[in-house]
Computed example of a mutant assay.
Amino acid sequence: MRRFAAVAMLLLATLTACSDKSGDKSGDEPKAIAWTKVDVGPAEPVTLTAHDSQLLVGLRHRGAKVVPELEFLDNGKRTPIAVKPNPASPYAFEAIWYSIAYDGKQLLALGGAAGGAHSNTRWTVWTGTPQTGLVERPQNFFTFGGQTAGDLYSAVLTPSGSALLGSWGGVQTGNDAMVWLPQSNGMWTRQDPSKTALQSTPSLLVGPGFGTTLGESIVLVGSQVRLAPGVVAQEAAVWRSAKLDTGWKRIVLPEPGSRSQADTATCTTDCVISGYADGQLAIWQLDASGTAKRLHGVPAIPVGDEDKLPAPVVDGGKIVQVVAQDNKVKVLSGQDGQWTVQDSTGPSGAPTAAALLPDHKLYLIAGTSLWQTTLS
């Protein structure tokens, strides 16, 4: 009997151990991503721009009237690019970088500083090259200001030319999406959105809020609001030109839910677009032909109107999206239907910008710091 009892106890212990092991999911949890803080001196990083193996970091000095800075970052080596404001342009000395475009040769930057009686953003435009530096090109007040002024959000460079992107008081109603193009005298001029997909109408309000490029095309992402008796529907949408500011088409992103918004995008051979639908993270793909699809299986991560998503990046065939959840930085990666969410060690604060280099190094602005990790 004692021998039988001992065998029974051993069998029970073995079964219990196996049961405990099968119920322990800790071994299935993906490993946290370790980030390393990158030294950018006393300034605060605000923008990231990647081109091939080059990374441009836009910097600001918070609370100080110091000229904004711009530098190349290469394996920890910082190479400053000269920034030359016009002495007669006071807001240039206080500008914060909103968007910096770089195509390997030319630089185009959009800066903004709050000013005036109503603390509206006073916009500044900068052009140049890494060798000559960024030079401010002063504009008259009504280039970006006035009673019907809207917002600006992106500077872009295409093989056909450069553009600034934003919004302006509508030809008919609301705000229209707006494109500014440069003139030979250094001034920028608003283009006419009338009778194009950029124009708002009494039954359809356009609302892009971010711009990038896909080959010769400009790509805007945001949302449209359909207005009908008893119906107000906000749907994630894309506006794409055929070439620079010509041939605009609007594409409503599929499976928009009851309320959705496209916040940001990265375009290479196609576009990966991030935003939200029904308060949760949503990711879409738009191919070169203009066909869009919503990617399935994206984990339920809350994203709202006030949240800023860094642009997604594509590493091989894998999409990588950095998000904030429960005041923590998390990294979502995968493909349609198959996703992994990893915690982060290092960064604190909301992530606002991300850029990937060909060596698989991913850079991230979170809070007031720049971070780097290498994707596996």
Rank of each mutant, 00 (worst) to 15 (best):
G297F: 02
K308I: 15
A311K: 12
G337L: 01
Q342Y: 03
V341E: 03
V313K: 01
A354E: 03
I301K: 09
L295M: 12
N327A: 15
L309I: 04
A350W: 14
S333L: 09
V329W: 09
V341A: 12
A350V: 14
V323G: 07
D307Q: 10
V322Y: 05
G337Y: 04
A300L: 11
I301W: 08
A324E: 14
G297K: 07
G349F: 10
Q338D: 13
K308F: 11
K328N: 12
A353Y: 09
N327H: 13
D315C: 14
S344G: 09
V323M: 03
Q338T: 14
G304C: 07
V313P: 01
Q338W: 10
G337R: 02
A300C: 09
V322W: 09
Q321R: 06
E306F: 13
D305E: 15
V298L: 02
P299I: 05
H296C: 02
D305A: 13
V341D: 10
V322G: 11
H296T: 15
G349T: 04
P310D: 04
V298M: 09
L332P: 04
H296P: 02
W339D: 07
L295I: 11
Q325E: 14
G337I: 04
S348R: 13
D305Y: 12
A300R: 12
V329P: 10
A311F: 06
P347F: 00
V313M: 08
P299H: 06
L356N: 00
I301G: 03
A324Y: 08
D326R: 13
P310M: 06
A354G: 05
P302V: 07
P312Y: 01
W339T: 06
T345R: 14
H296Q: 15
Q342L: 00
L309R: 08
P310R: 00
V323L: 11
G346F: 01
P302E: 05
T340K: 07
D336V: 06
L357H: 01
G334R: 07
G349S: 01
G304E: 02
V322L: 13
V329E: 08
Q342G: 01
V313S: 12
A354Y: 04
D336C: 01
K330I: 00
L309Y: 07
V303W: 05
D305K: 00
D326F: 01
G334I: 03
L356P: 11
V341R: 06
G297S: 08
I319K: 06
D315L: 12
G346Q: 07
P347M: 01
W339R: 10
S348A: 13
I301V: 14
V331F: 04
